[in-house]
Design a protein around this nucleic acid. Sequence first.
DNA 1: ACAGCATTTCAAAAAAAGTTGAAATGGAAA
DNA 2: TTTCCATTTCAACTTTTTTTGAAATGCTGT
Lengths: 120, 120
Amino acid sequence: MKFEIPKEIERELQKKGGWSNIKKRLPADEIKQVEKVMKVLSYETRLRILYAMAEQRMCVCMLTELTKCSYSKCSYHLSKLKDAGLIKATRKGNYLVYSLTPFGRSIVRHFKKYKPEVKK
Amino acid sequence: MKFEIPKEIERELQKKGGWSNIKKRLPADEIKQVEKVMKVLSYETRLRILYAMAEQRMCVCMLTELTKCSYSKCSYHLSKLKDAGLIKATRKGNYLVYSLTPFGRSIVRHFKKYKPEVKK
DNA sequence: ACAGCATTTCAAAAAAAGTTGAAATGGAAA
DNA sequence: TTTCCATTTCAACTTTTTTTGAAATGCTGT
């Protein structure tokens, strides 16, 4: 199909250096990074973990209780959160204690501030 | 497996009203809403659309060019963005012109401010 | 070195999300 | 009212993500 921009929008584009300029300015790297973070946060279990950790650092056994998931399932989700730079782990004796990174914290704060409004 | 909280963490929990309190305070509705938004933003094509729209409202034919997607594919992704309250459409003659909602705009702004750092 | 515990890893199976192209829709112009 | 054009919808298919349970890892105390 042919590519034709409506007049009204064409005019707006002129002021911004044209269509090709808009396309060129897309921050490809940032978008890839954001995609990864979003993928990780697009799952209820992982969000529950994130929100709970905003209140309190936790070991995995607490998270299995909180999320009603098996260890292996929890572990899977924790590794996703970790790879995205949202949480970090430190060992305390036999336990691994997970807590939020500053970046993870900033996300929770954002959504407390800007509550989404989603179609039911 | 039995559920046992390490001493050090147990002490932290006391100050916060205990483990059950942490669990009770989880904002279940907010989490469900955020999950939906995140799911929508966890896909490169849709993020490209979002970022481009932060610069300029657009009709679908422009988006097919920007994303190198067929109309039907574009349409599928647009409907997800719309359901999440990130974009809205208005008709101009034969064209449907899509643009960001304030919520959509707030998301783009957030990620421009807090750049994620993801493991490669 | 061994046993016990908390947690992770693995591979196969199940579930969810994205893609495709053809057909349907709905406004605008003839 | 018919045709045209931009866009959406549908159902079958493909790809990606999650779940499962069994086996591996790696501290810690004995």
